[in-house]
Computed example of a mutant assay.
Amino acid sequence: MVKIGNLELGDFPLLLAPMEDVSDPPFRAVCKENGADLMYTEFISSEGLIRDAAKSVQKLDIFEYERPIGIQIFGNEIESMREAAAIAEAAGPDILDINYGCPVNKVACKGAGAGILLDIDKMVSMTAEIVKSVKIPVTVKTRLGWDENTIRIVEVAERLQDVGIQAISIHARTRKQMYKGTADWSYLNQVKANPRLHIPVFGNGDIDSPEKAAEYRQKYDVDGMMIGRASIGYPWIFDEIKHYFKTGEHLPAPDLDERIAVTKKHLDFSVKWKGEKLGILEMRRHYTNYFRGMPNFKPFRTEMVTAESYDHVCSILDQVGEVYADYQF
């Protein structure tokens, strides 16, 4: 049984990665229904929380059916992160997660996210202060290092454990790699081989099929996996991986009716949570992914991403169901 604090997550939990502009409550809802064991909010700026910025505060929204749920924060100032941690804890999550992995310039080049991998001592000090400031379990998401010359992930995991974190998720790329190249999970073997390390280690990067999940589970000895990009438009991946672990067989791919039903459910929640205008706008990034691979789909996609009302989008989805009624995935 994998545990974070007193939180029991099963024998090999599958986590939904926190993804900016993706892993909001509507998306988390469909992932939870399809097998995600632990989910995190989008990362939230510590400075935004302290300033009470509307966008940052809205990201604190969590719902009972999502539990266990973690709120993830990022920043480069220790005192700001302490204050933000307290604000996040007050929102009632089960876990507080610290983002030490975001590679984008506007975050990393200001010393936050993956930028802190250039100052491990500060990373450890910041983590220690956050752990002391909250009562809920603190976890960390990070990368291997800034570049191939600064990979100290075995030391980082041990030092963060020693100041109180209760699990670590490692994206097996450097910041320099961004999302390119291949994730090198061999470093996770090294982390797990450290006899002093006893907290759960979750692997992240390139898990895009049940076969790869099974191969990496056996090969790299991690305690669970965090799935990000492969879940966008395909929340079924969590249940598919679990089924493959148990049986060695594939679940049937979701058919068109299921894809349309889940898209509508996602859209419905998005509109209820954000209002019709913003809810429709922020769903536009998902349509291509839900219907990936369907031939001659571009006209429908174009119409969906320009539709301005909930009813219009639903009518287009109904048309898709009629036109592609015989299509097999």
Rank of each mutant, 00 (worst) to 15 (best):
M1G: 15
N6T: 03
M19T: 04
E20C: 03
V22S: 00
P25Q: 02
F27R: 11
A29W: 11
A29N: 14
K32H: 06
N34I: 10
G35W: 01
E47G: 14
D52Q: 13
Q58W: 05
I62A: 03
R67Q: 06
R67Y: 09
I69A: 02
G70P: 01
I71H: 01
I71L: 05
Q72N: 00
I78K: 15
E83V: 09
E83G: 09
E83C: 11
A84I: 04
A86R: 15
G92L: 09
I95V: 08
I98M: 11
Y100V: 03
C102F: 10
N105R: 14
N105Y: 07
K106P: 13
A108I: 00
A114K: 00
L118A: 11
D119T: 00
I136M: 05
T142S: 12
T142Q: 05
D147C: 02
T150W: 11
I153G: 09
I153W: 10
V154N: 07
L160I: 11
G164S: 06
I168D: 10
I168S: 10
I168A: 06
R173E: 11
K176T: 13
A183Y: 02
A183T: 01
Y187P: 12
V191Y: 01
K192W: 01
A193G: 05
R196E: 15
I199H: 11
V201T: 14
S209L: 04
S209I: 04
P210C: 11
E211I: 15
K212A: 08
A213W: 13
E215Y: 12
D221C: 07
D223T: 11
M225D: 09
G228P: 00
R229M: 02
R229N: 02
S231W: 01
E240V: 07
K242R: 12
F245W: 07
G248M: 04
L251W: 00
P252M: 00
A253W: 05
P254Q: 05
V262D: 15
V262E: 15
H266G: 12
H266T: 10
K272N: 09
K272L: 07
W273C: 13
G275I: 05
G279T: 02
E282N: 12
Y287H: 06
N289G: 11
Y290D: 10
G293N: 07
M294T: 10
N296I: 05
P299H: 00
F300Q: 00
T302S: 14
A307W: 12
S309R: 15
H312G: 03
S315V: 08
V320A: 07
Y324V: 01
Q328D: 14
Q328P: 14
